[in-house]
């Protein structure tokens, strides 16, 4: 595989990462949301492996496998178990004005393109053009956290942001040092567990995972 093909595949994967980010932004059903998250993880993992191969940085293989096992299988599985345990299986979130959300997302993509254009000029890596996409993914994850009311979907937004950061690290500098990446992976895993415990507490206290309920201080008025 020569550099040109690798760059093309890389940009293709970047485009699809962005697409999954948009998909998660507007997806109402919680199961489909988790599937989209797993797909995004898979795309990231393939992308990391390809970048590792082209740049012959072998520690990227490890982080690719780590991404695959953690973000494609383990985290979706944990979220899945949580949904079953908390009995929010059929819940459909009400999202206000989806076309508006899409337009804001598009504006964020344009903004991050403008922000990243001078940075990409400085870089000489083949993956430099995907930096803007990575930043856009982070921002769309943030937008998703802001617009969602449900605690579980907010967490998925958070994890999507982390995906974006990981993507940015791969495309900007061919990945972080392995120690850092292992640390981040462990953090994400621990975070998922802690979130799970929190969900249970929120659920038993408020009978719902809608975070709007927490704005009230009084008990049962």
């Amino acid at each position: 595989m020569d550099l040109q093909t690798a760059a093309q595949i890389n940009s293709f994967l970047a485009a699809f990462v962005l697409l999954t980010a948009f998909g998660m932004l507007v997806q109402k059903r919680i199961y489909s949301l988790i599937h989209l998250f797993a797909w995004q993880g898979l795309l990231l993992s393939i992308n990391t492996a390809i970048v590792g191969y082209v740049a012959s940085k072998h520690h990227l293989y490890i982080s690719s496998i780590l991404t695959l096992s953690l973000k494609v299988f383990l985290l979706p599985y944990i979220l899945h178990v949580l949904i079953v345990r908390l009995r929010i299986r059929r819940e459909v979130e009400t999202l206000v004005n989806i076309p508006m959300l899409m337009l804001i997302g598009l504006a964020l993509v344009i903004f991050s393109y403008h922000l990243m254009a001078p940075v990409s000029e400085l870089s000489k890596l083949i993956t430099r053009s995907t930096l803007a996409v990575a930043l856009a993914t982070v921002m769309i994850g943030l937008l998703m956290m802001i617009t969602r009311k449900h605690a579980v979907t907010q967490i998925i937004g958070f994890l999507a942001m982390e995906n974006g950061l990981f993507f940015a690290a791969t495309s900007a500098t061919y990945g972080m040092p392995l120690v850092v990446e292992l640390g981040v992976a462990l953090d994400v895993l621990i975070a998922a567990f802690i979130f799970g415990i929190f969900f249970f507490h929120i659920h038993t206290t408020f009978d719902s995972l809608d975070v709007d309920q927490m704005a009230r201080l009084k008990e049962g008025d």
Partner: peptide, 22 residues
């Protein structure tokens, strides 16, 4: 509006990825 909005989103993403990625 959602259906055709997503068509518009796809088309605009296509245009943006032309500028960003190519």
């Amino acid at each position: 509006t959602e259906f055709l909005g997503s068509a518009f989103l796809m088309a605009t993403l296509g245009m943006l990825s032309f500028f960003i990625l190519e």
